[in-house]
Structure formats: C-alpha cells, structure tokens
Design a protein around this nucleic acid. Structure first.
Lengths: 344, 344
DNA sequence: TTGTATGCGTTATCAG
DNA sequence: CTGATAACGCATACAA
C-alpha cells in the first residue's frame, strides 16, 4: 500500500514493466487488449506514476511556472485563471509561485529551472528591474507579462506582453484635461522606479506639456518603502500626504485602481466629495472599479487577451521559435462617476 | 553546459560524488577544507541538485501544498503570504495550486500526493463537500482551513481551522437587531449548501427567532449556478432579485464582504441610500470593507492567527501527532458606516 | 575522512 | 507486439 509502483502493476497484470509504460504513455505499438487490461488495473488500484522518476528519466518536465509578484493584485487573478487552463489544456503541468516584492524573480526562476527542469516561465507583475545579463542566464523560454519593457535593455533578449503605459497614461491625462482639469495631482510608485511608475508618469507629463499645462512638483506624490505600492493602503497614505501639502488641485490620477480607492477614502475622510470637489482616476480596470462607490474612471487593461497571448508566445518559444516579441495591447477608458467635468 | 551534475562537481574537485553529496547536505563527517572547496565550486558553477533525482532517491519530498479554492478571495492572500513564509522557514518547499469551483479538491490532492510524495496539504477555502470516505483516502496529513466542519462527518478524521460560522453569523444578526432592524434580508450561497452558506443562515435564523422575529421567506435570497458565489457580481445580482420582489426590508446581511459590495452597488443604482434607506452588513473583514464607501460593517476573521495555526497543526500531524484538532477562532464585529440605527 | 557501488521508479533501447 | 535491461542524478551503506 505504501509504495505502489509500475512493477506492481506489471506483476499483477502478468506483463513486463515496459508494456505498462507503453500503456501509460499511449505508445502505438501495444496490443489494445493488453492496454485496456493494464489501464483498468491502474484505475482499480488508483496508481499514479511517480513524477520524480519520470522527469528524472526524461530529463524534462512538461511544466510551466508562473512567478507572480503581487498576488493581491486582482488583475492577476483572471490572468492566472486563463493561463492555468491554457497550460493544462496543452497537457503541461502548472506551478504557481509567489515572489516577494523584495525578491529577485530571476533568481527564483533560475532555481526552479535548475531544480525542476521546467519548460517555460511567465513573469507576472512586478516591475522591470532585470539586467540584460541576468535575463540571459535564464535557460528556458520566458515571457514577461504585464511588465513594461525597459528601453535600457536590448528588446531581443526577452518577450513581453503589456500595454503601452506611456500611451495609456497619456490617454487618461487627455481625458482629465478634456474635463477641464488643469491642476492634476498624480500618485506614483517610487521615485527611482524605472518601470510602470515612471512610464505612467511620463505619459502624464508629456500630455500636460502638450496642452501647455505646468506639472506642479507639489502635486507629484512618490511612494516610499517596500511592499505593495499599488495598494489601497498606499493610495490612502499618499493622498493624506498630498492633502497635507495644502496645494490646490481638482483631480487626482492614481496609477492603480486600488490606489484610487485608498485615495477616495482619504478624500472622504477629509470631508471632500468625489467627484464634486475632486475627481479621481485609476488605472487597470478592475471589477471593483465598477462596484466602488462612486464607480471609478479607469483605464481597462485587456487582461483576457493578454493572458492568452502570454501563453501563446511562451509556447511558440518552447516549440522552437527564437524571435522574441513584444506585444503591446491597447487599453481603453472606462468612464466612472469618480470624475466630472469642471468649469474651464 | 546543458546538464551539469554532481559528477561534474566531483570530477572538477577531484573528489567522489558522495563527498560532494555530503557537502551539499551538511553531513558531519567531512573535512571542512574539502567542504569549503566543494561549496565554492558549486557556487562558482551555479550548480543546483536535480530535485527529481533527490526526491526519487529519498522517496520523500519536503513539500507542503496549498490547494486554494477561490483565488480571488482577498481573505486568502494574507493567509497564503503567512503560510508560505511559515512553510519556507521550516525548510519545506511550497506549492500553490488553484482548484476550480467545480473540481473535487480531494482528487486533486490525491494526485499530488501520489505523484509528488508531498508531506502535507492545506485545503484553503471552498465548502465542505467531502465525504468521510474520500478524506480517508488522503494518505498525508492535511488541514482544512477556513472551511467549516460538517456535522455529518466524524470529526476525528480531519483537522480544521475555522471560525464558528453559526456563532459569528448570530453575532452580526444580533448587531443588526440591536440597531432595531426587524426586516432583514439575507444573501446566501446555494440552497443546497451544507457548509458556510447554510451555517451562516442558521446563525441568522436562530437569532431572529430568539428575538421573536419572523424570517420572511421572500427576504432569503439563494444563489444559483456555479462559480464564485461570494463575489461582488453575485451580490449585485442577488440584490437586484431581492429588489424585484418588492418586499420591504431595512437591512441586508450579505454573507461575504464582496457580496455586500455588489449589494450596495445594486441599491445605489436603484436609487437607495446606504445606510439611510438600507443598512448593509458583510462578512470576512477584508481591507476593502474599510476602504469602501461607505465603509462596511462586517465580521472580521482573524486571518493571521488562523494561517499560523493552520501550519502549526499541519506540522504537528507531520511530526507524528495522530489527534485531529478542530480549532475554532473568534471573529469580531467591525462597525462601518454601511449600517445605522433606525427607529425601533 | 573518503570513494565505490547500488538502487530509487520510470522510460527508451534493443533483442526477441 | 513484448520483455529484459540500462540509464537518468542523487543519497547512502559499506568498504577502504
């Protein structure tokens, strides 16, 4: 009972182990009758091949690992759902691994690759802090998903699925400006951030300038510390900081929906009404942005498509393609009740 | 480069493989000098032992698997965080596996056990639909976490960490009644539910009766269909159903915070104000219940403690304990602005 | 303190 | 179509 192996199956069926192996792995050259017999016995005894022995022998492991940075980001839940089912439908196993905000995911990836001989990796979330050197050490195909590429690194060494953060941020900024907002505060990630945070700021700044509007330094709020900077809590704290500066503003652009929620909370606590006194915009297009009160104006990321494309790209690489692609998806404004047109 | 094994290390160091193995596994009987030499070489070559070979040889895999049903439930994110770090701190590996709502997690567990020879399992979330028979097939220690035990099954065959859903639900009902609410609608899971959904209804019903209040059949809304019934979307739909019945009510008790959010959304859309026209209460104590507008009155589950206790129990079982425990944690009311006192 | 040899459960090769 | 047997990489009993 304790260990029940292929040998036991073979013995009980009166055949050799290789025959059993053939039955398990759907090899063509096996007598259908014997095969049926074996499979029935396997079913009866509830036998399952030892995966360690299997991967040891085959020196390959049909497994895709998803390394997720920020498991509390609801944006990823759909994606995981889709990715998992896509992976399983291709008869690959699926590993989900949470990476801490202070961990280097390439190191985690490297360990998994060496230890488990997996076939591919999806890096989900986090910001782009990888050096070209480190990316090159990854010996299996991988795709960066919802992680904006860095211009500093040769794009040919990695595949990425993302939106154009600069463009989408500009889109939102345009929208706010069209509503006559001129004094727009923005809640950002860390000052040193070179990824999502920086890109979204860039789109904001460009658009402001394009419209001849000045970006007031005092209305730019950077995050500090570690942990999940895109959280409600951080949005809440940043907004309190903003309010304490005493500067006038008519709109807040939070670079995530969750930050926007925290921001609205802080505003309400301070006795301000949204959108009557202040308009607040988010980014991501989470469900909660619709269900929040007021519903939040946001940029919707096409998560389903992005998840599917992530897997598609990954499998193309696994199947031998050697051209890394950077797929940029288009977001869209979802108008909520957290923003309003003010007098110009 | 492609495959770099313990043999290569041994060869390059001019020692035998067993010596290398001893160095890796911190065996006592090894010359410190040789050990240092070997470890340096390992570092230099970035060698990592093949985990398949390892577990195959040892026929054991120091791994804990968490099978999570409902990855979008934020309640679980903290727990996973804590569980993962607790597990890793004990030098066990950690596997996270998402189980679909329509999947039988005991079957998934069984597969992992047989294939991967893991040491223990945490079932996180979902409802208790396991038969005693199936639970007994599980050959490794496991703990049901945040899953309310079923009275129908001999408690000695499994360990469980949970709150007392009946008691906590009663607690919330008491609270609403104290605010003079008499016509309370309740949003539930499926009618056939024998787990969380049923237990929370039971606490509600008992408390209503205790106070001589009648439970109006028309104010009980059951969910239908599959998928995540505790979601915002479902709360939204159930509330629309409730409203369409045209019955009078002054409060809604949603059995999850997310349902409560959906519920409030539906009420607002219908032109009702929360809490002025209708009070809404949730259950779970998610962060969002604080950040929502209005903040939501809810029952806080002590997730940190529960997560820690889950792992503690699991490891006690792994270490040889054979007494299954059912730890019941106490929740607490968190008063928000979604409920108010009405005239008695 | 060290090296050699064996076997963990499986798949692949090759001879029947 | 089938069965014996050799690997896969590692840990360990045993010999040195």
């Amino acid at each position: 009972m304790e260990k029940y192996t292929i040998k036991d199956i073979a013995k009980e069926c009166g055949v050799g182990v290789s025959t059993v192996s053939r039955a398990i792995n759907n090899h063509p050259d096996i007598n259908p009758h014997t095969k049926k017999l074996i499979l029935e016995k396997i079913e009866e005894k509830n036998y399952r091949p030892n995966s360690s022995a299997r991967t040891l022998k085959k020196m390959e492991n049909n497994t895709i690992a998803v390394l997720i940075k920020g498991i509390s980001n609801p944006l990823f839940h759909y994606m995981i759902d889709i990715i998992q089912s896509e992976v399983l439908s291709k008869d690959y196993a699926f590993i989900l691994k949470k990476v801490g905000f202070d961990e280097d995911e390439t190191i985690v990836a490297d360990e998994i690759i060496r230890e488990q001989k997996i076939k591919g990796i999806v890096f989900l979330g986090g910001i782009f802090t990888h050096t070209e050197e480190r990316l090159k050490t990854l010996t299996v195909p991988f795709v960066l998903s919802t992680i904006s590429p860095s211009k500093a690194i040769d794009g040919r060494v990695y595949s990425a699925i993302s939106i154009d953060d600069v463009r989408e941020s500009a889109r939102m900024t345009e929208y706010l400006i069209k509503l006559n907002h001129k004094k727009i505060a923005i809640l950002l990630a860390k000052k040193e951030d070179v990824s999502v945070g920086y890109l979204r700021y860039q789109g904001f700044e460009e658009t402001m300038k394009k419209h001849g509007l000045k970006v007031d330094e005092d209305l730019i709020i950077y995050s500090e510390g570690d942990g999940d900077l895109f959280s409600m809590e951080n949005g809440y704290n940043l907004t309190k900081q903003l309010l304490s500066r005493g500067k006038e503003f008519t709109a807040i652009f939070a670079i995530s929906d969750r930050m926007a929620i925290g921001s609205i909370k802080a505003l309400i606590e301070a006795g301000k009404k949204v959108p009557e006194d202040v308009s607040v915009a988010g980014f991501d297009g989470l469900d909660i942005s619709y269900y929040y009160n007021p519903s939040i104006t946001t940029i919707r990321q096409p998560v389903e498509e992005m998840a599917k494309e992530t897997i598609k790209q990954l499998f193309m690489l696994i199947k031998g393609s050697d051209t890394n692609k950077h797929m940029i998806f288009e977001g869209s404004i979802v108008e909520g009740n957290s923003t309003r047109k003010i007098r110009g």
